[in-house]
Computed example of a mutant assay.
Amino acid sequence: MDVISEILSRTPVKSVCRFRCVSKAWQALISDATFLGTHKEPLPLLIVNSIGADEPRDHRDSPLMDLESNLNFYIMGAYKYRGHDLQLLDLDGNVIRVMKRAGTFLTMCSGGAVNGPAACVTLHHSTFNVIDLASGNVIATSKAENMRDYNALNSVFSYGVGCAIPSGNYKLVFLARSQACQVLTLQDGAEWRHAQPSPAQVFFNGYRQYSSVTINGVMRFFHYNWEAPQGDENYILCFHLESEEWKESIKGPVKLTDPYDMPEPIMTELNDTLCIVEWEELVTHVWLLIDPVDSIWVKTYTIPMAPATYVEMPLRMVCDNGEKVLLHCSPRRFTSTATRTLQDYDPLTGSHTHRINFRAYGLGKVGICRMDLKYVVSSKIFTMVEPEEFNLPLLLE
């Protein structure tokens, strides 16, 4: 069995799970703690919010923008459907894990460093939670007690949640249109504190869930103003979460396309690399930052879109019989047959392959992580505790 164990340890998670049906011996081997600890091929998983039958239909689908784009809609108490379940799906749409009443998915948040533990940030009522996706535990949490007042005074703002290095503290950062910057550590009893004003105003483009990206302890905000003079229209503001100081900004790509009748460019990350996505009619351009010191960007992908597609968001580059890009695609108009989908794009052939329909999942944003086999084999359903007990772990249902 030693040779079989070695081969299976390098086999993708999806195949290994199926091989448990081969025999009792294989089932015992694959379920063994020693084997699970040595398996070398993590499984890519999607993070989505599921919706209930009482969810307002207008909120079930929205290209790019989710309800969290308007945080004051939540914070001022205008929206009552806040106990969304969080689901982990494999790339074929199979449910791997469910976290009941986890709240609205905001963003991924690795545990401090590139390839750190898979974690995500959710909002439940006015409480921000960082959830370890492998264990299902809430590992950091804080109620934004005075966020109502802050939001009312600064109705246009950007925000981000990230992990500081080396302390490992998770922090929420708010940038106001006045360039004021406030920071809240996600822990019991923490209070807002003022940091240095941002070097420039972050022009809010309507998609707050894409307004910041944290990689290796540095939170980045996208300053984009297509009406600015040539050479000054886009750059990346860099906030060091440990020192809570602004560092030297990164110049963005060359002047991007004017967003006439299309969404403005947004910033995200692709396989832990900073990424700018822009759209033209029937085309998605993906820029990757390859040298942050000299601000060198490369337009890595130019992806054709079908006429019925409004936007395509790259989620991850995967190696599946050659390099492919996973895309979260939104249609121009939602109907009973036209809904958000997950698709593969093959740069070699220029073709798309359909994977999943997201009709059963709401609130727009989709995240992606990688999880080891030992967490997939023992899939569980977790229930969030009540808001006043968010400092406790998730409870097994």
Rank of each mutant, 00 (worst) to 15 (best):
E68Y: 05
D58E: 12
G52F: 04
N70V: 05
F73Y: 13
G37R: 03
N72Y: 08
N72R: 11
D66F: 02
G77Y: 14
V48H: 01
A78S: 14
P44G: 09
I75E: 06
E41N: 06
S31D: 15
A53E: 15
Y74C: 04
L86A: 04
V48N: 07
F73Q: 04
N70Y: 07
Q87A: 11
I47T: 03
L86H: 04
V48T: 03
A28S: 15
N49K: 06
F73T: 03
S50Q: 15
G77R: 13
P63D: 09
Y81C: 07
P42N: 12
L86G: 02
L46A: 00
A53Y: 04
H59T: 10
T38D: 10
H59Q: 08
P63G: 10
L64N: 10
R57C: 08
F35S: 07
N70C: 06
T34C: 08
F35N: 09
M76D: 10
F35C: 08
M65D: 13
S31W: 11
L71W: 05
D90G: 04
P56N: 10
S50H: 13
T34K: 12
L89G: 02
K80A: 10
E68Q: 05
L86N: 02
A28L: 14
Y74P: 02
M65R: 15
T34S: 08
L43N: 13
Q87L: 09
L45T: 00
I30K: 01
P56M: 02
Y79P: 01
A28E: 11
L89F: 08
N49Q: 12
T34D: 14
I30S: 11
G37K: 14
L67R: 01
S62N: 14
R57A: 07
I47Q: 00
D66C: 14
N49M: 02
G37W: 09
R60E: 15
N49C: 02
L36A: 13
D66H: 03
E68K: 08
N49Y: 09
L86E: 06
T34G: 00
L46I: 05
E55L: 07
H59K: 06
G52W: 11
I47M: 07
H39K: 02
G77L: 13
I51V: 14
D66I: 01
L67G: 04
M76G: 06
Y74E: 01
H59I: 05
D61Q: 15
D32M: 09
S31T: 13
H59W: 09
L46Q: 05
D54F: 09
E55C: 01
A33Q: 12
I51D: 02
E55R: 01
L71Y: 04
L45N: 00
L29R: 00
S50I: 04
H59C: 00
D85L: 02
D61N: 14
Q87M: 08
I75N: 05
K80Q: 15
K40Y: 12
L89K: 12
I51G: 01
S62G: 15
Y79G: 07
D85F: 03
V48Q: 06
I75M: 02
R82P: 00
L67K: 05
Y74M: 11
H59F: 08
Q87E: 14
I30F: 06
L89A: 06
S50N: 11
L86D: 00
G83T: 12
Y79E: 14
S62Y: 03
I51L: 07
L43H: 05
H84G: 03
P44V: 05
K40Q: 15
F73L: 15
L45H: 05
R82Q: 13
